[in-house]
Design a protein around this nucleic acid. Sequence first.
RNA 1: UGGGGUGUCGCCAAGUGGCAAGGCACCGGGUUUUGAUCCCGGCAUUCGCAGGUUCGAAUCCUGCCACCCCAGCCA
Length: 557
Amino acid sequence: MENEIGNNFLRRIIRNDVESGEVTKVVTRFPPEPNGYLHIGHAKSIHVNFELAQEFSGVCHLRFDDTNPEKECQEYIDSIQEDVRWLGYEWHGEIRYASNYFEQLYEWACDLVDQGLAYVCDLSPEESREYRGTLTRPGVDSPYRNRSSSENRDLLERMRQGEFDEGSRVLRAKISMASPNINLRDPVLYRIRKHEHHQTGTSWVIYPSYDFAHGQEDAIEGITHSICTLEFEDHRPLYDWFLDHLPISNRPRQFEFGRLNTSYTITSKRKLGQLIEKNIVSGWDDPRMPTIAGMRRRGFTPNAIRKFCEMIGTTRSDGVVDVAMLEHAIRDDLNENAPRAMAVLRPIKLVLENLPETYCEEFQAPCHPNRPELGTRKISFSRELYIDEDDFREEANKKYKRLVIGKRVRLRNAYIVQANRVERDADGNISIVYADLIPDTLGSDPADGVKAKGVIHWVCAKTASRASVRLYDRLFNHPSPDKGDLNFLDFINEESIGILEEAMVEASLTQATPEQAFQFEREGYFVADRYDYSADNLVFNRVIGLRDTWQKIEEGV
RNA sequence: UGGGGUGUCGCCAAGUGGCAAGGCACCGGGUUUUGAUCCCGGCAUUCGCAGGUUCGAAUCCUGCCACCCCAGCCA
């Protein structure tokens, strides 16, 4: 297994711990705050935590770090659980909540107070900021720093009783205002928030801070390896400080890895929220969103997302992963697993004039060219077909391998045809191409030896169904839309969605199920929309196009 | 100018003193009833830079440079 997915520093650390007997049962956790939808960056974290636990026969918890009721709600709790499950992971035991431990956390706070290691501070938020100092200047002790334990205890209890206003007091650890690590300058442990909590209702008006909660939550749950992202590295001394000074026997240890950044993508919850507010996208699950829900609706598979996470590795360096890698992951999965079908996105009619009006034939076409075990599906063929307007030109150079007047082309899974002439509509656009079917070319080359240059897809006009096809593309046209001073809103790709209402698809596609993915041959991978697809309202989303070297050639000319 | 990190091909990433894996992207060629897939080949004399130690350094030492994170009663 380790050869399969390579090596990384976390795996090495855990392996050492297990081999040395330091750790007997590996326990990790994925600890999201329920204040938004999960995105591709979370997927990496989920993957890291669950896979590591699995690899070492351990377990992984799902814990909601719900210490800030103002930003959290049940909708997010529900969506997060759904997304984790959809990705294919099952957490160990019940869902955990930081709020399950509020009483214990409070007791520990009292403990610190009794030890003279925490105090109630009456500084306002503004004053507090001034006393904290700056990156280069040490902080100054709060005038309330030396209150007696009993006074602190009294004040803390009254904070809990709701006697004081929000912002008027906090409980702080007494560490050092001169620490070069700003997180150690008497950090806040509890703040007053008279806000209903989605889990605990109105039973609390004071809430623990992240720093005071996280390590202790880990200890309570017996977490052995607490894995988080790099920005928490400066908090580790504090994480350890609480464990050192509280009556806790478990020793979880924190390790940090580099957050995922992907080109042409933003993952800031605030900014993603703005896209929704400004109606640039339809919601958290818009198929262009980098959220798990969005990617799911777009047609990504859990398998592809997991593969992607393996591909990018886990390190302590922070870089930007090319979104092309993500695109590769989904193409790779769908190429292997998606059944093929034919769909004409921009139809023009092809009439085979040498066939009788009533001509009708049926073929069995393989569902997958490289996997015969996936079976076949029935496709029908008649005098009138639809082909894509891009697949016909009245004249073209020899690089163009599709249908041209006087030339031949193979109809995928069917006969070779030769174009004769066109008919135009009132606007002068080609509306019908007339052609002849070359007899006896089903599964073999023409008797006259004149082969077809290329292959195009088609659908039978008699049996095809109209479908709505949504062509999605990258949401941004800049590789780092929110880097530095850039405003991501300036780089919205206006062509990130294109809706084709008149696509024509082969009859078998009326039998799809929502979220089923197909390769529309020569076009790309498409998925039946999770919500809007039904047998009488065919709606497909383009997940990703096929690799297109022809387009490169054309653009290069 | 304080503290904590990171620097290996365009991107991700192995490598942990013995002579630069792999993937993505890209470029050639072959197969092909998808201009797809697949297959074959190419793609870092060099590891941020400069010194030093060593028979030997991406790996050890010294100095420098660049970039990221931290001054929420957010997580």
